[in-house]
Amino acid sequence: MKKKVMALALALCLCCGAALMTGCGQDGGKIIMGTNAEFEPFEYKTESGIVGNFDGLDVAIAQEIAKDMGKELAVEDMDFGSLIGAVSTGKVNFVAAGMTIKPDRLENADFSDTYFDAGQVIIVKKGQTDIKSNEDLKDKKIGVQEGTTGDEAVSELGGSTEVYRFKKGMDAVLDLNNDKIDAVVIDEMPARAFVAKNEGLEILDEPFTVESYAIAVKKGDTATLEAINKTLKRIKEDGTFDELYKKYIDAYVENFEE
Results as ranks from 00 to 15, higher is better:
I131W: 03
K126F: 08
V144G: 00
E188G: 01
K45Y: 13
A214F: 00
F208C: 01
L83V: 06
G147S: 09
V95P: 00
F208M: 01
Y248K: 04
I61M: 05
L201F: 06
M69F: 06
F80P: 01
D250Y: 02
A62C: 14
K168I: 04
G23P: 12
A193D: 01
E156Q: 13
I181R: 02
G17R: 15
I101M: 14
K138W: 06
S112D: 06
G159W: 07
D68T: 08
A216P: 04
A96P: 08
L10S: 15
D205M: 09
F256H: 01
A109V: 02
D117F: 13
N93R: 11
D242R: 05
V163M: 04
E206G: 07
G29W: 11
K167F: 12
T231N: 07
I249V: 08
A7H: 15
G25V: 14
A18K: 14
D187Q: 04
V95N: 00
E188P: 02
G29E: 13
T231L: 08
L244P: 05
D27K: 15
V173F: 00
A109L: 09
T224P: 08
E107M: 08
D27Q: 13
D250V: 06
S88N: 02
G200F: 06
K230Q: 10
A62I: 08
T161P: 11
A18N: 14
D250C: 07
G23L: 14
V184E: 00
L57N: 05
L8M: 15
T161D: 13
A96T: 06
V185F: 02
F94A: 04
K236D: 09
M33W: 07
K30T: 15
F42W: 11
N178G: 14
I203N: 00
I50L: 13
K3F: 15
T114E: 04
D77H: 08
D242N: 09
T209S: 05
G28Q: 11
